[in-house]
Computed example of a mutant assay.
Amino acid sequence: MRAELNSISGPETVHGTAIPAGVDDRSTRAGALSVRHYVAGGREHGGGIGRMAGYIVDSFGKDGIVHVVTDTRGPRWFPLTSLPRLAFAILLMTRDRVVSPRRVHHIHVAGRGSTVRKRILTAAARRLGCRHLVHLHDYDYAADFNARSAADQAAVLPMFKKADHVVALGRRDHQTLTTVLGVDQRRVSVLPNCVPDPGGPRLRDNDETRIVFLGRLSERKGVPELLRALSHPTMMQLRWRAVLAGDGPVDEYRRQARELGIADRVEMPGWLGPDETRALCARADILTLPSHAEGLAMAVVEGLAHGLAIVTTRVGAHEEVITDGSSGLFVPPGDVDALASALARLVSEPETRRALSMQARAAYLAQFSMASYRRSLERIYETVTNGTR
């Protein structure tokens, strides 16, 4: 059983480097400000949230605030391993309260099962007196909350209302927090996702236009419509190749691509790490994400950073970061013809593609640089550590 618990807890990561669980950086013992992130799946299996947490950790570096990432679930939800992970996270939080009392606990939460786990974790933080902030990542938290029973809603509210601070990805989530969940707006900050600067855009001299999709392959992300749009007659007569990078039922979507006659032009490599994602985007021309629901998709911010021509939908905070016709193109969710038309236009009009690329890169530099994000986050941490309860 002891060996099993060791495999369940696994290593923590400080500045992206694995360290044994229970070993702290010396600066945390000396009383310096430090941060523990709680992410379901950690950096490696936490999807877009895990990737964002990883970017935060790497950004601060060894000369900045010490960051530790704790996995509260494991690669997938499975009671025999996930529940011990959650219990272990609470044990670490309890130890922190004694060993590193100034540590800020940065709790990343979404809807559904994530809310259940983080409700327990935030209750522990309140009981222990830990300074903590809740970072909301969800494609429609208002709908998730409204679908819950009255008793469940009452149990969820303290997670947000009693946190020292709450972070939202965009204006829609800010409104959800302050109106639906009743959080004091003075304790809510809007902080859109960001990515490290890849140094783009690069001059791309592709024989065929390269299209990328980043994210979990699913209906919510619009993958069925994307495959049908790629097989549309307007696209089949053009020169392009596509890479759909992400986890999910990859084999099923490969089967659909074969049935649609585009398997030789569409690659699905599965989930890619940050380095592989950067390399893929560096070779690409177009990023498409025809989602039905998002908060603020990391894929869209990646596309802006790399200066890609973006085709996406008006969901979540996308309209807050993209100007239609200038830094990207919007299509209605689920509209295969509109998606095919937008993609075909960008494939066949390199000048339009380049113009969108330049504006996308400019939008990234103006709003989504990692340096700007870090400054904003440091101010939030200062608010959390110096605020009164």
Rank of each mutant, 00 (worst) to 15 (best):
M298Y: 02
H232D: 14
D264A: 14
E349I: 01
L356S: 05
P224C: 08
G334L: 12
G199T: 03
F88S: 11
L365T: 13
I286E: 02
Q153V: 01
L80H: 08
S327N: 07
G270P: 05
T179K: 13
A257Y: 08
A155K: 03
G42D: 06
L177Y: 00
V183D: 02
L244V: 11
H292F: 10
A338D: 08
D275P: 01
L128V: 13
E267K: 13
A305P: 04
S369C: 10
S100P: 06
D335L: 06
Q153H: 05
G273S: 11
T277S: 04
N386P: 03
R26I: 07
L80W: 07
G295V: 03
R345S: 13
V300A: 09
F60G: 03
R202T: 12
H15S: 15
T385D: 15
F368H: 15
L133M: 12
H15N: 14
L289V: 14
E44T: 15
A245G: 09
L133H: 06
R95V: 11
I322C: 09
M268T: 11
R51P: 02
S291T: 10
M236I: 09
H105C: 10
A363V: 07
G41K: 00
Y364Q: 06
R375K: 15
A30K: 11
D138F: 00
R361V: 07
A371Y: 07
A293S: 07
L227N: 04
L226Y: 03
V331N: 09
D140T: 08
G182I: 00
G170S: 11
E267P: 04
T178G: 00
D140H: 11
K221F: 01
E267T: 14
I8F: 14
V68M: 15
N193D: 12
T122M: 06
S7W: 08
T178M: 00
I310S: 02
E267A: 15
A342S: 09
